[in-house]
Structure formats: structure tokens, C-alpha cells
Computed example of a mutant assay.
Amino acid sequence: MSEQGTTVVLVDDHPLYREGLAGLLATAPDIDVVGQGGTGREAIDLASRLHPDVVVLDFTMPDLDGVAACREIVAAAPGTAVLMLTMSDDDDLVFRAMQAGARGYLVKTAAPTSVISAIRTVAEGGAVLSPALATRLASWFATLQREHGPLAHLTARERDVLGLMVKGRDNAGIAAYLDVSPKTVRNVASSVFAKLGVADRSGAIAAARDAGLT
């Protein structure tokens, strides 16, 4: 950050909203708006010339959308953090923005104090998502872990047995709970060990916990 505080460029194709945001940031003594633009290309040009600490970027703009602009800004000005501030909270757009290098994503309904706080956070190298988006992102990663993680190839029965192991039940307890024979539990457990690449129950439990199974 510069001596005058956090330098910010605002890019939004609605001048009224952009000026309102500039007025809001003027109330924060540690934030200095050094440039404004209304298109994706202007965002890239301003970031390349001014190297601000933060570019606050809308998604829907003439000539180049916010995700494409973000990708080019990150390449042209690696020290500049991009904070997406847009109307859409579509999951796909959020993921695309983060993949493009955005450090934060807020919807325009966010409280003014949240926007100011987000700018400060991304300027310091942190990441920002609204609580609702963060919850959905965590859920998405959990689903991805289940579908592609080490437990993805287990059958439903194998997951049941492994889950009961994690809860501390022995083979007899698992057999009683699932209403199967102890031999069946031993066979299923052996299959679980083989698929997880572990030698015993403790290894399977450790692998399950690492994968988020509790």
C-alpha cells in the first residue's frame, strides 16, 4: 500500500453507482480512489498504468466482462487485488471469478461497511466472500471431495462400515447396528482397507477423517 493508504480503482458501467461508491469510500480516511472506469478495457488500462492496491470490478460491462478483465488485470498488475462487486451471486460466476484470480466477491446488496472492510482485507492479501457465498462454496468443495476424494470409490455399505468405525464401534457393534454377520463386516472392512490403501482400522479411520468423514 502507498503512503496515502489503500489506493483503489473503481470500474462499473453505471456512473451513478460508481460515483456513489466513490462517495462512500471517501468517508474512509485510509482509502484513496485514484481512478474510475466504465468498461473492462478501461479497468485493464487503469490497473496497468496506476498499479492500485485494489480494483473494484463489476461483472457486466461493455466490451469485456469482469472475469475476463480480472484475468488480464492479475497478469498485468500482479500486486493489484481484484474485488468483484456485482449484482449476481451465481455460483458459476463466483467460481470463475476466483479461478481468474479475484481475491474477493461481494454482491451489491452488501452493507457499506462490508464493502470498505472487504477492500481493506484484499489489499492486505486476504480473501473475502459474503457469508452466504462462503457457505455455498464450502458445500461445493465438500461435494467435490465426496465425488472425487479417496472415499469416492467406496460402496454405500463400505461407507456405512467406515463411518461406524470412525464413531468407535468394533466389528461386533457394527454387525449388530447394520443387522449383518460379523464375517460380513470383516469382509467389507477388508475391501475398505484395500480401496483406501491402508493396512488396518486405524489407517482407515485416519483416511476417513482426512476426507472429512466424522
Rank of each mutant, 00 (worst) to 15 (best):
G212S: 03
L196N: 09
M61S: 11
P62R: 10
I116Q: 15
V185F: 07
A68S: 09
A208E: 01
T214I: 07
G23H: 03
L144K: 14
T113H: 13
T121S: 13
P150Q: 01
A138E: 14
S130H: 05
D160G: 10
L196T: 01
E158K: 05
F193C: 00
A199R: 07
G212L: 08
A142I: 13
R120Q: 13
M1W: 09
D92Q: 15
L57N: 00
L25S: 08
A132G: 04
S181P: 01
V180Q: 05
G197I: 12
S191G: 10
V166N: 07
M98D: 07
S117Q: 13
A142K: 09
T113W: 12
D13T: 10
P29W: 13
R146G: 12
R49P: 07
I73V: 14
L154E: 00
T109D: 00
D13L: 10
L137H: 15
P52T: 12
L144C: 15
F193Y: 15
R103G: 04
T60N: 15
I44A: 06
A77V: 05
D58N: 05
D30I: 03
R41C: 02
V74L: 10
N187G: 10
Q99I: 00
L93I: 14
E158L: 05
G20I: 04
A100P: 04
D90R: 02
Q36P: 05
D92E: 00
D179H: 14
A43R: 00
S2G: 05
R169F: 15
Q145E: 08
K183S: 11
A77H: 05
L106Q: 02
A172Q: 10
H14W: 03
N187M: 02
V198E: 03
D32T: 07
G173M: 02
A138I: 02
P182I: 09
I31V: 14
G40L: 09
D89M: 12
D210T: 05
M84C: 03
I174E: 12
G37Q: 11
I44V: 15
V188R: 11
A76C: 10
G79N: 02
V54I: 06
A76E: 12
A75W: 08
P62Q: 09
E147H: 01
V198F: 11
E19R: 09
L154G: 03
E147V: 15
V107L: 13
I73R: 03
L83H: 08
L144P: 04
V192A: 02
L162P: 11
Q4G: 07
A47C: 10
N171L: 13
T143S: 08
G173W: 02
T184D: 06
A118G: 06
A204I: 11
P15Y: 07
R186M: 11
R18D: 04
L24I: 01
D58I: 06
R49I: 14
M84Y: 09
Y105W: 05
A127E: 00
G66Y: 04
G101R: 06
T113S: 15
P78T: 10
G163Y: 10
R186K: 00
T109M: 11
L10G: 09
A138P: 03
D45T: 15
E3F: 14
D179A: 15
I119Y: 12
P112H: 02
F59D: 01
G173Y: 13
P150H: 03
V185K: 08
T113N: 14
A172S: 11
D210E: 14
A206Q: 10
L25A: 04
